[in-house]
């Protein structure tokens, strides 16, 4: 699986407007719907389920990165998007640091193994300081899309 196939380019947000966790989850979900990655009628369900998941345990993995996610029956095909916050968002992260890069991942209900494979792919990228820094500095959607292609083309670590 390529990162560029998992991450839905058109719905990436380079400058998140929301300043809190729930707002960021809503903004990214609405962007996914607006750009046709999920159905409009599922926005509320996805937002609610993702926030509920977050409340059961933060997905703020530390180092400015959060990966809010949910497995839900209304999701037909696994899809992810990225939001970049210039001001930093409180995700109650493991290391208490504000989050600048949010990767939101939606998986179908029973896609346990695919979900783990997607997470592996995402963290293969995010564990690298260079990529985290580039993501944090990317001011446009295009720059983030380019970075993802670059990650796909780079030799795996």
């Amino acid at each position: 699986m390529k990162l560029s196939e998992l991450i839905h380019g058109p719905s990436i947000i380079a400058d998140l407007q929301a300043t809190d966790r729930n707002g960021v989850i809503r903004e990214l979900t609405e962007s996914l719907a607006e750009h046709g990655a999920i159905q409009q009628e599922h926005v509320e369900t996805v937002v609610r389920a993702t926030i509920a998941r977050e409340k059961s345990g933060s997905t703020g993995f530390g180092k400015g990165v959060a990966v809010p996610h949910v497995k839900h029956a209304c999701v037909e095909k696994m899809v992810a998007t990225i939001g970049r916050s210039s001001h930093g968002v409180d995700f109650a992260a493991l290391d208490r640091s504000p989050v600048y890069t949010v990767v939101m991942l939606l998986s179908p209900q029973d896609a346990q193994d695919d979900h783990l494979a997607a997470m592996e792919k995402v963290f293969r990228c995010l564990q690298r300081e260079t990529y985290r820094r580039f993501l944090r500095q990317s001011e446009t959607r295009e720059a983030i899309v380019d970075l993802i292609s670059e990650v796909d083309d780079a030799p795996s670590s």
Partner: peptide, 12 residues
């Protein structure tokens, strides 16, 4: 490291 642990892709 939570990020590194996710690389294990440890399924059931």
């Amino acid at each position: 490291s939570a990020m590194q642990m996710m690389l294990l892709e440890a399924t059931k």
